[in-house]
Protein backbone atom coordinates (compact mmCIF):
# COMPACT_ATOMS: atom_id res chain seq x y z
CA UNK A 1 0.00 0.00 0.00
CA UNK A 2 1.32 3.40 -0.96
CA UNK A 3 1.40 6.06 1.69
CA UNK A 4 0.56 9.61 0.68
CA UNK A 5 3.41 11.93 1.41
CA UNK A 6 2.25 14.76 3.64
CA UNK A 7 5.50 16.58 4.14
CA UNK A 8 8.21 17.68 1.82
CA UNK A 9 7.55 19.01 -1.66
CA UNK A 10 4.00 20.12 -2.48
CA UNK A 11 1.90 18.02 -4.87
CA UNK A 12 1.25 19.21 -8.41
CA UNK A 13 0.19 22.83 -8.87
CA UNK A 14 -3.60 22.99 -9.30
CA UNK A 15 -4.19 26.69 -10.07
CA UNK A 16 -4.91 29.72 -7.91
CA UNK A 17 -7.54 29.40 -5.19
CA UNK A 18 -9.89 32.21 -6.18
CA UNK A 19 -12.43 31.92 -3.37
CA UNK A 20 -10.90 34.38 -0.86
CA UNK A 21 -10.20 36.78 -3.70
CA UNK A 22 -13.84 36.72 -4.80
CA UNK A 23 -15.01 37.17 -1.20
CA UNK A 24 -12.93 40.26 -0.68
CA UNK A 25 -13.71 41.74 -4.09
CA UNK A 26 -17.44 41.25 -3.48
CA UNK A 27 -17.22 43.06 -0.16
CA UNK A 28 -15.28 45.92 -1.76
CA UNK A 29 -17.84 46.25 -4.57
CA UNK A 30 -20.72 46.49 -2.10
CA UNK A 31 -18.73 48.94 0.02
CA UNK A 32 -18.03 51.29 -2.88
CA UNK A 33 -21.60 51.03 -4.21
CA UNK A 34 -23.03 52.12 -0.86
CA UNK A 35 -20.44 54.78 -0.12
CA UNK A 36 -20.68 56.13 -3.66
CA UNK A 37 -24.44 56.50 -3.36
CA UNK A 38 -24.19 58.16 0.04
CA UNK A 39 -21.46 60.52 -1.06
CA UNK A 40 -23.02 61.75 -4.29
CA UNK A 41 -26.55 62.43 -3.06
CA UNK A 42 -25.64 64.83 -0.34
CA UNK A 43 -24.11 67.79 -2.02
CA UNK A 44 -21.97 70.15 0.00
CA UNK A 45 -21.20 69.15 3.56
CA UNK A 46 -22.82 71.85 5.68
CA UNK A 47 -22.76 72.25 9.45
CA UNK A 48 -26.30 71.40 10.52
CA UNK A 49 -28.19 72.99 13.41
CA UNK A 50 -28.43 70.86 16.52
CA UNK A 51 -31.56 69.37 18.02
CA UNK A 52 -32.21 67.04 20.91
CA UNK A 53 -35.28 65.47 19.32
CA UNK A 54 -36.00 64.18 15.86
CA UNK A 55 -37.05 61.22 13.79
CA UNK A 56 -35.13 58.92 11.55
CA UNK A 57 -35.84 58.89 7.87
CA UNK A 58 -38.37 56.21 6.95
CA UNK A 59 -39.39 57.17 3.44
CA UNK A 60 -38.00 55.15 0.57
CA UNK A 61 -37.98 58.11 -1.80
CA UNK A 62 -35.80 61.02 -0.72
CA UNK A 63 -34.84 64.33 -2.28
CA UNK A 64 -31.94 66.03 -0.54
CA UNK A 65 -31.99 69.82 -0.86
CA UNK A 66 -28.76 71.34 0.41
CA UNK A 67 -28.66 75.04 1.23
CA UNK A 68 -25.07 76.16 1.71
CA UNK A 69 -23.49 79.54 2.13
CA UNK A 70 -21.97 81.01 -1.00
CA UNK A 71 -18.37 80.99 0.14
CA UNK A 72 -15.13 79.10 -0.22
CA UNK A 73 -15.16 78.61 -3.99
CA UNK A 74 -18.64 77.20 -4.18
CA UNK A 75 -20.28 77.52 -7.53
CA UNK A 76 -22.34 80.70 -7.93
CA UNK A 77 -25.52 80.28 -9.93
CA UNK A 78 -26.05 83.81 -11.24
CA UNK A 79 -29.61 84.02 -9.99
CA UNK A 80 -31.68 84.98 -6.95
CA UNK A 81 -29.61 82.56 -4.85
CA UNK A 82 -26.53 84.80 -5.29
CA UNK A 83 -28.32 87.82 -3.89
CA UNK A 84 -29.30 85.73 -0.89
CA UNK A 85 -25.73 84.52 -0.48
CA UNK A 86 -26.59 80.86 -0.82
CA UNK A 87 -26.10 78.02 -3.23
CA UNK A 88 -28.77 75.34 -3.49
CA UNK A 89 -28.38 71.75 -4.59
CA UNK A 90 -31.03 69.14 -5.27
CA UNK A 91 -29.64 65.61 -4.88
CA UNK A 92 -26.13 66.97 -5.25
CA UNK A 93 -26.86 68.90 -8.44
CA UNK A 94 -26.47 72.69 -8.30
CA UNK A 95 -29.79 74.46 -8.93
CA UNK A 96 -29.23 77.50 -11.13
CA UNK A 97 -32.56 79.08 -10.18
CA UNK A 98 -35.84 78.66 -8.35
CA UNK A 99 -37.58 77.14 -11.37
CA UNK A 100 -34.97 74.37 -11.56
CA UNK A 101 -35.50 73.47 -7.91
CA UNK A 102 -39.25 73.52 -8.37
CA UNK A 103 -39.09 71.21 -11.36
CA UNK A 104 -36.74 68.86 -9.50
CA UNK A 105 -39.15 68.66 -6.56
CA UNK A 106 -42.12 68.25 -8.87
CA UNK A 107 -40.45 65.46 -10.84
CA UNK A 108 -39.56 63.61 -7.65
CA UNK A 109 -43.08 63.98 -6.26
CA UNK A 110 -44.50 62.68 -9.52
CA UNK A 111 -42.33 59.57 -9.18
CA UNK A 112 -43.42 58.95 -5.59
CA UNK A 113 -46.12 60.93 -3.83
CA UNK A 114 -44.62 60.27 -0.38
CA UNK A 115 -41.18 61.60 -1.29
CA UNK A 116 -39.47 63.08 1.73
CA UNK A 117 -37.83 66.44 1.02
CA UNK A 118 -34.79 66.72 3.26
CA UNK A 119 -33.61 70.29 3.73
CA UNK A 120 -29.98 70.42 4.82
CA UNK A 121 -29.48 74.04 5.77
CA UNK A 122 -26.32 75.60 7.15
CA UNK A 123 -26.81 76.49 10.80
CA UNK A 124 -25.33 79.96 10.22
CA UNK A 125 -28.03 80.94 7.72
CA UNK A 126 -30.91 83.27 8.42
CA UNK A 127 -34.49 82.18 7.90
CA UNK A 128 -34.78 84.62 4.99
CA UNK A 129 -32.18 82.56 3.14
CA UNK A 130 -34.03 79.28 3.72
CA UNK A 131 -37.50 80.66 3.03
CA UNK A 132 -37.23 80.87 -0.79
CA UNK A 133 -36.20 77.21 -0.83
CA UNK A 134 -39.20 76.23 1.30
CA UNK A 135 -41.44 78.35 -0.89
CA UNK A 136 -40.16 76.62 -4.02
CA UNK A 137 -40.82 73.22 -2.41
CA UNK A 138 -44.31 74.32 -1.39
CA UNK A 139 -45.12 75.68 -4.82
CA UNK A 140 -43.94 72.46 -6.41
CA UNK A 141 -46.55 70.63 -4.36
CA UNK A 142 -44.65 69.43 -1.30
CA UNK A 143 -46.82 69.46 1.81
CA UNK A 144 -43.96 69.18 4.24
CA UNK A 145 -40.19 69.11 4.49
CA UNK A 146 -37.76 67.49 6.90
CA UNK A 147 -35.05 69.65 8.38
CA UNK A 148 -31.83 67.72 8.84
CA UNK A 149 -30.34 68.37 12.28
CA UNK A 150 -27.38 67.07 14.17
CA UNK A 151 -28.14 64.82 17.11
CA UNK A 152 -27.51 66.47 20.45
CA UNK A 153 -27.58 64.60 23.74
Amino acid sequence: MRRRKITGSHPTFEGINATPLIDVVMCLIIFFLVVGKLATDRGYAVPLPGSSVGQDETSASILVVTVAQLAGGRQASGSIWDRLGITVQADGEVCPDVAFLESAVRAKLRQARDTSIQVRGDRALQFGQIEPVLRACGQAGAKSVRFATEKEP
Binding site: L38, A39, R135, A142, A148, E150
Partner: peptide, 22 residues
Protein backbone atom coordinates in the same frame (compact mmCIF):
# COMPACT_ATOMS: atom_id res chain seq x y z
CA UNK B 1 -14.28 49.26 7.82
CA UNK B 2 -17.60 49.28 5.96
CA UNK B 3 -19.64 49.80 9.12
CA UNK B 4 -17.23 52.42 10.44
CA UNK B 5 -17.54 54.36 7.19
CA UNK B 6 -21.35 54.16 7.06
CA UNK B 7 -21.58 55.18 10.72
CA UNK B 8 -19.44 58.21 9.98
CA UNK B 9 -21.70 59.09 7.04
CA UNK B 10 -25.13 58.62 8.51
CA UNK B 11 -24.94 58.08 12.23
CA UNK B 12 -25.17 61.53 13.69
CA UNK B 13 -28.27 63.17 12.34
CA UNK B 14 -32.03 63.04 12.40
CA UNK B 15 -34.92 65.04 11.05
CA UNK B 16 -37.61 67.48 12.14
CA UNK B 17 -40.73 67.32 10.04
CA UNK B 18 -42.40 70.62 9.25
CA UNK B 19 -45.39 71.46 7.12
CA UNK B 20 -44.97 74.50 4.87
CA UNK B 21 -48.24 76.41 4.97
CA UNK B 22 -48.38 79.57 2.92
Amino acid sequence: IFFMATAAFMGSEWFLRAAIPF
